[in-house]
Simulated assay, not measured.
Amino acid sequence: MHTSKIQNAARVILGAFLTFAGVSHLTFNRSEFLAQVPQWLPVDPDVTVILSGIAEISLGLALIFALRYKRWVGITAAAFFVLIFPGNIAQYVNKVNAFGLNTDNARLTRLFFQPILIIWALWSTNVFNKKN
């Protein structure tokens, strides 16, 4: 499946972003991510942060290197962004300060970036091309 140079660059950038975010889940941003885990989630928050970090690292590296499966990786990354969206909503609803998001407006604004990440994952892996 053919992707443009711009799509390829966007895919690699998204992959690097996800890989970095995943590493930060497991290291220096652990407490920030813990603050975002919804209280209603029936899994230990630390386990949630660790598993989501591993998922992000895996998806990030797959976006960069699994070229043969990039369309499926894009779909999986988009699904991941949908699955973690409740954490962003919980941060807004529960007024949790994390990542410098310490006002309702900042937390609300962040919610609008999740659809952008979903579209980015799908577009950069050419999922929208009907010929695939």
Rank of each mutant, 00 (worst) to 15 (best):
G100S: 09
F81E: 03
F85H: 02
N29M: 15
F99M: 07
A78Y: 06
V23R: 00
I118E: 05
F85I: 00
N132G: 13
Q7V: 00
S4D: 04
Q114C: 00
L83Q: 10
A98I: 06
N126Y: 04
L41F: 14
L117W: 11
V96M: 15
S124I: 01
F17M: 06
R107H: 01
A90S: 13
L63S: 13
N132H: 14
G53K: 09
I118W: 00
G22D: 06
L61K: 03
D104L: 02
F28Y: 13
L34D: 05
L63H: 12
N105S: 13
L111E: 05
I119G: 04
I116R: 02
L14E: 00
V127Q: 01
I84H: 01
F113V: 11
A35G: 15
G22T: 06
V23G: 02
I6Y: 11
R110G: 14
P86C: 04
L41S: 05
F17N: 02
Y92F: 15
L63E: 05
N105A: 11
E56P: 05
N88S: 11
G60C: 05
L34W: 03
A9D: 09
N8V: 01
L63G: 09
F80D: 10
L108T: 05
R107D: 00
L14H: 07
A16G: 15
F113Y: 12
Q36M: 15
I75T: 08
V82C: 11
I116P: 04
F17C: 03
L122N: 07
L122C: 08
I116V: 13
F20M: 11
V37H: 01
L122V: 07
S52P: 08
L111R: 08
I116E: 03
P115F: 00
A21M: 12
R110Q: 11
I119F: 12
T3V: 14
W40T: 08
G87Q: 00
V23N: 01
V37I: 12
V73D: 07
P38Q: 07
G60Y: 00
N105P: 01
A62Y: 02
A79W: 02
T103C: 06
L41A: 14
T48C: 13
L26P: 00
S58A: 15
F80V: 03
A90C: 08
D44M: 11
L111N: 07
W72I: 12
V43E: 11
D104R: 00
K5P: 12
F112W: 11
M1A: 12
A106Y: 07
P38S: 12
K131Y: 14
Y69Q: 09
E56N: 11
A106M: 09
R30K: 15
N88E: 02
L111G: 06
L117S: 05
F99W: 09
F99H: 04
L101K: 07
L41W: 11
L61S: 10
L111W: 05
N105I: 05
A90H: 13
V127I: 04
I57V: 15
A77H: 07
R107I: 00
K130Y: 14
A21N: 09
I89P: 06
K130G: 06
L83C: 15
